[in-house]
Design a binder for these strands. Sequence first.
RNA 1: GCCGCGUUGGUCAAGAGGUUAAGACGCCUCCCUUUCACGGAGGAAUCACGGGUUCGAGUCCCGUACGUGGUACCA
Length: 514
Amino acid sequence: MSKNVRVRFAPSPTGGLHLGGVRTALYNYLFAKQQRGDFILRIEDTDQSRFVEGAEKYITECLNWCELIPDEAPHIGGTHEPYRQSQRKEIYHQYAMQLVDSGHAYYAFDTPEEIEHMRGKLKSEGKSNLQYDHHTRMLMNNSLSRLPEETSKAIDQGIPYVIRLKIDPDAFIYFKDMIRGEMTFDTNNLDDKVLLKADGMPTYHLAVVVDDYLMKITHVFRGEEWLPSAPAHVMIWKYLGWENAMPQWVHLPLILKPDGNGKLSKRDGDRLGFPVFAMNWKDPKTSELMKGFKELGFLPEAFINMLAMLGWNDGTEQEIFNLEELIQKFSIERIHKAGAKFDFEKAKWFNHEWIKKLPVSHYSSRVAGMFTEMGITINDTEKFNKILELVKDRCTLLTGFWDNAHYFYKPPAEFDTASLTGKWNDDKKDFFESFITLLPGEAGWNSSSLENIFKTLAAEKKIKAGELLMIFRIILVGSKTGPGVFAIAEILGKEETIKRINLAIAQFVALNIK
RNA sequence: GCCGCGUUGGUCAAGAGGUUAAGACGCCUCCCUUUCACGGAGGAAUCACGGGUUCGAGUCCCGUACGUGGUACCA
């Protein structure tokens, strides 16, 4: 019988959730759901100095927006509570002590200055390895270099200390990464990582291992930036005697900046003009607002789809997947090894595809909200949806609906007069004045009958329909782009259409367009 | 510096020794549409380099280059 799959997404609440974070959460989620396992949200808040108010709430809101709902989480609960590491302090302390007792960890009393001094000294001696490790530890101030009595005395006196992992030299650590295969590390290159900080909090290294063990995590999906410390984690699993329960490692490739160097960071969004956060994030300390994909007009379906494809594909030509399909088809074997540069153009393409694919009713209330913000209240949902349906092909972002449909709710404020020059004359004016007298009653008000009347009249007046069509469009919309004119007029209604024709004629005359 | 990881068009990528090296985004041309978009048809553009192994290498091995991550009492 195979173990029940349990995975965790373990962000630290230090700010907004960016692309890479959401993708890690997504891959965790997809794998868990595919294997009918559990997806756990654990908050890694062991660094009190970096704690940011509201970040945890923001993270859960992002996951909700993306529909990546955890089975266990701080706000949901679960059988392995608590899910915030800051509330598990004693647990880590207990295991740190176990490591000390078994000789795999030790007390270290060095101040940051002393460590700095050691590094400086090593450097001046031309050493390239400046680590606190088996080479240097006997030279430092710790329970290994001191007599036991001295150590207990220092502890009793309340001298601050950390607990460090004691890495045994001259050995190799082997482990398998599900993306990269067999990994080998020489323990001589590993340092004695701090396990427990002077403030009593664990470092990430101790906390992940302890929690992954206690929470029965079977697969660890995390960014590739963790690969160099993975051997230390494996050592902790061993030293704690849990080697048989060790999870499978899945180190995900990084999401890189579009323009070359480095992993995508929060700053790149501003610099290159695209969001890196899932949703708007306002830093409580600086009040700085970082834009989010959601507010920019992304659909969660598109956001997730785009992220899933950044580093994974199912081997076919299919690119558009919904969550359900992703759950079915996701496979660790098909995750790429190399990092991927983020491409905002492609991200927008995914959104466009989803806008076209989904029924407008799926997002019309969100779009209506945007109209409200622009000062137009939508009362008639049916009509609104009809409008959205008419223009959705030309909207890449949800915010694009405003640009492409606002004219249905207010007459054009200005006209594309440049396109009118040379086209507008008294004959055309006469045509539109005649046209409005021919408009049918409400019952016959539809685009095809309108088109009929329009073209018959044009033939009678011996004017080319093409030129009239363009003018008609400018009259109704203000510009020469958009869906079919008669479809626009149909939605506008008879009164509004007549009103706009009169208004435009008056304007054209006033502006003396020829 | 040291230690890892990686490298197929500008970008995302298929490819598991024998292919005319898919497809998508973006770009360009044309068609459709009396507009724009959608849709359709085309086009330009790629295996980082050097050595092996092999009858044969984008695919395997070794080097080099480049990129990237780590090197914290941050995660």
